[in-house]
Design a protein around this nucleic acid. Structure first.
Lengths: 246, 246
DNA sequence: TTAATAGTGTCTCTGAGACACTATGTG
DNA sequence: CACATAGTGTCTCAGAGACACTATTAA
């Protein structure tokens, strides 16, 4: 972007502190599919406000980094994971959503396979939780989502984070059938049943086997690896791979 | 959201100026459909940076207002319009997108009928333009969009605003067939041909009449008003209304 | 009558869904 | 063999699309 001589003169006098400015954070909804349920990574707040409550991992945006970059950093700080699928979700900026001061949060969501997630949690310090989600609405209606604690008890999340979780689930449901988001929650090789279970977790409803297989196989997004399951006590399933060409 | 005693103690000592904070603006893509083309409202920048260039109407977010509210205010300031359909689009925050300082912009798009737009432009001061858009990609691929000036010359927009326009067009195309966005660009009563022309402008490609009519009439989103066109030199078309029930 | 656009009817073809069937591994 | 899950074949039905036809106004 070229600047005029006038622009340069103006900039040399510009005082960025002249207007009151909000704080800007990114918050990341890191989703994974484990043990039959869709789960989100939460961290226990170690400092006020809402100290001790569960919240989405997040961070303040640094002056020299982009938003995507800040989201990746927030995720890496909590999990060590990088190169993960991640996308901007929505920006939450209601005055009063943070009791400290005006905080505008650019929310992201990230999709991680169970393997990656478990590896990252290996020597996990306390204060992190993979909370199963309970979605009290169907379709892409939207609204807050309930995260469950260790004994299945609903958690009272910090800030408006239940709403951000809801936006992530709604987005995921919306993108499921025209975009390859489902594969992001699976390891490189997977069976069609694995894929179906992931879709069912996301949508929160059972799907018909025949129809699902036909859809997936004709979508052109699957590539047969030639391999099969090895540890089954029944007919082993073919293993597929996501075909990036489509 | 309840606060603990510890939170209250913490907040009384909190210094919001301790971290460097970006500026936050909203920019609004105000779209309308006039004379066969999809157009966006642009304003001529009266001050540096990029003084004299065309840009999207925008404003800094005030400490006490929500983001939606700020977007509505930015639009009202430039057009006098209120109560217009408007939705958050995407947040643009690349460092360096504004030469002044770090500026994060929450982009919105708004849809306005030609009538509303022309009424608002009635005693329009100079420095505003309804620029036709030229979309150099098909489908929802995305990328920058070219806005055309008075003699059809491509404009060199300020900041990353060509990219924001592109995001708005991509979103609109994506939502067109599962959401009532098309109606927002039309007056209260309209013919099916009017609606088809709007869809064609948005998609940038011609549609088949038969299929389009069937789709719309079976969608349940149209209500027959019982009225017909009055000023046509041929068979007058039925006038429909958007049925909010669906 | 013609011109011009509104609006309809019909045909075909594809794709979704239901559902029952066959295949192939383990114990 | 039984059992469990993988994977296929077939039928029906609804909807998309192509396209030609009829309808209704003004001039």
């Amino acid at each position: 972007m070229t600047l005029s001589a006038e622009d340069r003169r103006f900039l040399s006098d510009y005082d960025p502190g002249a207007f009151e400015r909000p704080s800007v954070t990114v918050d990341v909804v890191c989703l994974t599919a484990v043990e039959g349920s869709l789960r989100a990574l939460l961290v226990k707040r170690a400092a006020p406000p809402h100290k001790g409550r569960w919240a989405l991992p997040g961070t303040f945006v640094q002056p020299t980094e982009g938003l995507d970059e800040a989201a990746a950093r927030a995720l890496a700080d909590k999990t060590g994971l990088s190169g993960v699928f991640s996308e901007q979700l929505y920006t939450f900026g209601a005055p009063g959503r943070d009791p400290r001061t005006r905080v505008i949060s650019v929310a992201y969501y990230a999709l991680v396979s169970a393997e990656q997630m478990l590896a990252a949690s290996a020597g996990a310090p306390a204060g992190r939780l993979l909370a199963p989600l309970e979605v009290p609405w169907s379709g892409a209606a939207g609204g807050p989502v309930v995260a469950l604690g260790l004994r299945g008890k609903p958690l009272n999340l910090a800030f408006d984070h239940a709403l951000i979780l809801g936006a992530a689930v709604a987005r995921l449901r919306g993108k499921l059938d025209y975009s390859p988001v489902g594969f992001q929650l699976l390891p490189e090789r997977f069976s069609l049943m694995d894929l179906q279970r992931v879709h069912e977790m996301i949508l929160g409803e059972p799907l018909k086997k025949g129809a699902f297989r036909k859809q997936m196989l004709t979508s052109g997004r699957l590539e047969d690896t030639g391999q099969r399951e090895s540890d089954a006590s029944h007919r082993p399933a073919k293993l597929f791979r996501f075909a990036p060409g489509a």
